[in-house]
Design a protein around this nucleic acid. Structure first.
Lengths: 172, 172
DNA sequence: TATCGACATGTCAAGAGTGGAAGGTAGAGT
DNA sequence: ACTCTACCTTCCACTCTTGACATGTCGATA
């Protein structure tokens, strides 16, 4: 249900087409709320049907540019302030940990080492990204920076945890 | 699909009915891979159709106890060693951060403060749970402990991040 | 001028996940 | 004897998500 609001949020700053939004999902939002093309186009149609956005301009190649309506902005604000974020997350990585007992200790350690390596790589990438961006004082920068910081802390935590976990697996 | 393998994993130690498994999902696995009753019963039927589990005993009240087959155990091992965990997670909490700019700085800080409080509460609960459990040296204990440690570190990280983030939001 | 890559949207099938209704039994306590 | 609770399963309707297929146009460049 958040996809709807993610689209509204992206349309706050400037109108955009489904194609534009698709790219936004593939880049900046990819690590937070991935979405496919079919989902985005479908949701945009529904959003327009419900009057939360409108087609403000038609471009070449059938391009339809959507603009947020007042109703849409109000709905976005309502979502942010009146509803609780859903905190039920699924972690495939962690789920597997519960069942590592069916493998040999060596295999279990390999798995954890793999996760540590993956987290380390992600951390390095995010750090580089952070350094590469020229952060301003505007809203987008402030909140983008906060989100990126989350990613970095999360990756660091995962790496440390996986490395620690590896040492906990003894040859029984 | 991970639900399938979660069920196989739970059946490794001992046979269980859908009802038993439902309770397992509601308690220990709730924070890692939540699942509803409809999903579990449906998946068990499919698993049995495919020979990964078998009905080993019929009890009172239509109770069907499932046991893992050799094929099922092999599939679980294959999943753990041959397939990569899916790392695409969705975070509603973080998604909202991207759009806090449409609120007033005060509202944004309130949101972050709420997340910090929530994480603090979760951390305290997990810490208490950790202290309450009498950890052994067996596999279940080792990997259960590792998973719980993840939860604690994650909660702590979220709390620290949210508190830090709150200080980043200035009155512009 | 031909063609290729980026632009741009639509649709469909299948699987995953949610929430609830419906139906029924065994056993424990009053 | 009665009733209540916990036990136990099946089915359904709906939404969300994925992945693939289909279709076509604009603009640059060789």
């Amino acid at each position: 249900m958040s996809l709807r609001h993610a689209l509204l949020g992206l349309l706050v700053d400037h109108p955009a087409s489904g194609y534009d939004l698709l790219k936004a999902f593939d880049t900046s939002l990819a690590n937070v709320w991935p979405a496919t093309q079919s989902q985005i186009y479908g949701e945009l149609t529904k959003l327009a049907d419900n009057g939360l956005i409108v087609v403000s301009e038609q471009g070449p190649r059938g391009r339809k540019e959507y603009t947020l309506t007042d109703t849409g902005l109000a709905e976005l604000r309502r979502w942010l302030t009146q509803t609780e974020p859903q905190r039920t997350t699924r972690s495939d990585v962690l789920l597997r940990v519960f069942f590592l007992g069916v493998l040999t200790p060596q295999q279990a350690r390999d798995y954890l080492a793999g996760q540590a390596a993956h987290a380390a790589e992600l951390h390095a990438n995010l750090k580089a990204l952070d350094a590469a961006i020229d952060w301003d004082d505007d809203n987008l920068s402030v909140y983008g920076r906060i989100a990126l910081e989350y990613g970095q802390r999360f990756a660091a935590m995962q790496q440390e945890w996986a490395e620690w976990a590896r040492t906990q697996v003894r040859n029984t």
